[in-house]
């Protein structure tokens, strides 16, 4: 083999044209959100008031929290079906135990979040240590958590003190409290995603084999990410308590699949490794606003159901049409 002539071949350097650019899947939820927002406000002019914004946010916040949980887990190529159950546990426990004093409120909120972390960690251990599939494990723990919630509070009831109910209401420094809360959530995610653990989460979802070879501990990362999911779910349970002023053992069930839907519409791929919270927030509010708009238009709420289903399918199909080509080109070995 004549080595000399080898130097004639110059390979093109990895050029700047290969830098990542936002695609359809990232912008779609925002476009939808803007459209829906405009629709909503045009039907109900009062919506431009900060009070209404605050309320709308409050309406969707529980879903945002559950979707935050799902986003993290989905990035690792997993899924967490148990968030509904954990949400129910935190909701029912709070409704049953919390007293009127601030101390009690703080204490029980803390307890509930810790339980969320523990339950999530259990998921993480089962998934990270053994080779069990997230779908199956969290299907099982969903049932278990639902059972625990049923045991805590067999029927809707309990009571939530006023101090907790009024927490998300009102303003702080001119903006509704819920806005600040959302900002806080976004900030938390931004920080976490930029830590080494956060990178490990993305790596694990993007390419589990390469991640392991690069030193990522599947066990530790799974535990962290599912514990995070549990905490978010528990927080969602607290939030929904402020909305409904009561506890219900089945409160979480409708949220699970909507959270997955919001995540996926928001641009996070079920294949893992990509995505983020911002898109999920958009996706969650798209869902919330669809309900709002159908209500405003006086349309049968069942149209809302239907359109949410259709939207989900269409959004993901679009997402795929653009994603698959890009991924196939990128992943060629």
């Amino acid at each position: 083999m004549s080595v000399g002539s080898a130097s004639l071949m110059r390979r093109k350097p990895a050029s700047l044209s290969r830098l990542p650019r936002p695609g359809i899947s990232e912008t779609l939820p925002w476009v939808l959100l803007v459209i829906l927002w405009i629709l909503d406000t045009s039907l109900q002019p009062a919506l431009w008031s900060s009070e209404q914004i605050g309320l709308t946010l409050a309406n969707g916040m529980a879903l945002v929290l559950v979707a935050m949980a799902e986003t993290a887990v989905i990035i690792t190529r997993g899924i967490d079906l148990s968030v509904g159950g954990m949400m129910a546990i935190s909701n029912t426990l709070l409704a049953r135990e919390v007293g009127g004093s601030t101390v009690s409120v703080l204490l029980w909120c803390a307890i509930v979040l810790i339980i969320g972390a523990a339950g999530g960690a259990l998921n993480g251990i089962l998934i990270g240590v053994t080779r069990l599939q997230p779908f199956v494990v969290t299907l099982a723990t969903w049932s278990i958590f639902d059972g625990i919630a049923l045991w805590i509070l067999p029927t809707t009831g309990g009571s939530i003190p006023n101090s907790l109910i009024t927490l998300p209401l009102g303003t702080w420094l001119g903006l509704p409290r819920t806005v600040w809360f959302l900002v806080l959530l976004i900030a938390i995610w931004a920080v976490l995603a930029r830590t080494r653990s956060g990178r490990a989460v993305y790596a694990l979802g993007s390419d589990p084999v390469a991640a392991r070879l690069s030193g990522v501990s599947r066990r530790k990362t799974s535990i962290k990410v599912y514990a995070f999911s549990g905490v978010c779910a528990a927080a969602a349970g607290i939030f929904i308590a402020t909305q409904t002023a009561s506890g219900s053992p089945t409160v979480g069930d409708p949220f699970i699949l909507s959270a997955v839907a919001a995540t996926v519409i928001g641009g996070t791929s079920l294949f893992g490794g990509k995505g983020g919270f911002a898109g999920t927030v958009a996706g969650a509010f798209v869902f919330t606003l669809i309900n709002g708009v159908t209500f405003q238009l006086g349309i049968n709420s069942y149209w809302g159901e239907l359109s949410q289903g259709l939207l989900l399918i269409v959004a993901v199909a679009l997402h795929h049409a653009t994603e698959r080509g890009a991924r196939a080109r990128g992943r060629r070995r």
């Binding site: 990895a14 990178r199 993305y202 790596a203 993007s206 390419d207 084999v209 390469a210 991640a211 070879l213 690069s214 490794g273 990509k274 990128g330 992943r331 070995r333």
Partner: peptide, 14 residues
């Protein structure tokens, strides 16, 4: 390794 340990979705620096 034979199976490369590079994560495709992350950039070279990462």
């Amino acid at each position: 390794f034979q199976e490369l340990s590079l994560i495709a979705d992350m950039n070279v620096a990462e």
